[in-house]
């Protein structure tokens, strides 16, 4: 038991040192990479390791007779959480999310310290001591709080009321509901039922299973399937269309959407918001192929009312591309990112 706890304490100390280094900018936060693009269970596991570490640490400290009072344990854990979110996680998390996590953290700490009567008494003892002010030191502290708290509250109010020069926050609807049908080059497409005419198997039939088997390997470093290289001239059918789509993409789209389709193209940072990142599981991966078709064809100007504030500079590509070219580009995007268009059955 003791050995286990010592190990925990060791983890705790190492973790704290690492975090301290990150806070003071000695250790860059990219030292330990956060894996992008997948379920960030890694972050939760890291925090869990810290918790194990803290458990060990507090056990060892207790055994050495230097137990940390419950009050400071609670506050310390919350401070840790805030520092972790601020300095460990990169790129920086927006304030709104950090505030959310901070609140949850605060609630969590409260639930922890007040879970039973004994702990709760231990936790509030220091507060009570200051309020009761039995000793001179405590009395001094109480007066200090009497002055400091109103000043703090006043400061916060002042800060909140002060006019800011920042642009206001916009709640943008990134994927507004599409219309039921859309008319491109004189032909009407019903979004719910239309299919990509190039997503075909060797027999020329629409076949998502077939195309799914030939896309880029999604999980493992985006490798092409060995027998499915679109740039092999011998290929016909689906893979040939992917190649053609790729050509169109690199002639028209990659300037903004990037050569890795991650929304970080040459011109990307001239725009606010930056162009859509197709490798994100929240964009094309969760949309129907016809949705992409509609967005490409109509561009930012064709967004419905719901797409307020229409923050998109995407041109309506129907003015530059034929219907076939649009379908091929969509095909290529799915092929390259290794995602599948959403289906509803």
């Amino acid at each position: 038991m003791k050995a286990l706890m010592s190990l925990g304490a060791l983890i705790g100390v190492a973790g704290l040192l690492l975090l301290g280094g990150m806070v003071f900018d000695v250790v860059p936060s990219t030292t330990i990479r956060l894996v992008e693009g997948y379920m960030p269970i890694q972050m939760l596991l890291e925090v869990a390791c810290y918790v194990i570490g803290f458990t060990g640490l507090s056990y060892i400290m207790g055994a050495m007779g230097m137990a940390i009072p419950r009050f400071w344990q609670g506050i310390g854990f919350w401070v840790f959480l805030m520092l972790y979110l601020k300095f460990r996680v990169y790129p920086p998390i927006p304030f709104s999310v950090r505030a959310m996590y901070g609140t949850v953290g605060l609630v969590t700490v409260f639930m922890w310290v007040s879970a039973n009567e004994e702990d709760w008494n231990k936790f509030k003892q220091p507060i009570m001591n200051v309020l009761d002010a039995q000793t001179g030191m405590k009395r001094l502290l109480r007066y200090a709080y009497l002055v400091a708290i109103p000043i703090l509250v006043g400061g916060f109010s002042f800060n909140a009321m002060m006019p800011k020069s920042e642009e206001p926050i916009e709640l943008r609807t990134v994927h507004p509901a599409p219309p039921a049908s859309t008319k491109v080059h004189g032909k009407t497409y019903t979004l719910q039922t239309s299919q990509n005419p190039y997503r075909v198997n060797p027999e020329g039939k629409y076949d998502q299973e077939f195309s799914n088997a030939n896309i880029v390997e999604q999980g493992m470093g985006r490798l092409m399937k060995p027998n499915a290289n679109p740039w092999d001239d011998k290929n016909q059918g689906y893979l040939k269309y992917v190649r053609e789509g790729g050509e169109i993409f690199f002639q028209n789209c990659h300037f903004c959407h990037g050569d890795n389709l991650n929304g970080r193209g040459l011109h990307a940072f001239a725009f606010n918001p930056i162009p859509a990142n197709f490798t994100d599981p929240g964009t094309i991966a969760q949309l129907q192929e016809t949705f992409i078709f509609w967005r490409v064809a109509k561009g930012g100007i064709g967004l419905p009312n719901e797409g307020f504030p229409w923050a998109s500079v995407m041109p309506p590509w129907e003015q530059h591309l034929t219907v076939d070219e649009i379908w091929k580009v969509v095909l290529f995007e799915y092929w390259h990112t290794g995602y599948y268009p959403r289906t509803w059955d």
């Binding site: 956060l34 992008e36 972050m43 996680v89 927006p94 999310v97 642009e167 606010n272 930056i274 929240g282």
Partner: peptide
């Protein structure tokens, strides 16, 4: 898709956070 100021948006480089954004699905 997170609520953020344009300055934070630039710092993060997109509407979606590459790590935490994945909790959103």
């Amino acid at each position: 898709t997170m609520v953020m100021t344009p300055a934070e948006l630039k710092a993060m480089g997109g509407q979606q956070h590459p790590v935490l954004g994945n909790y959103g699905v």
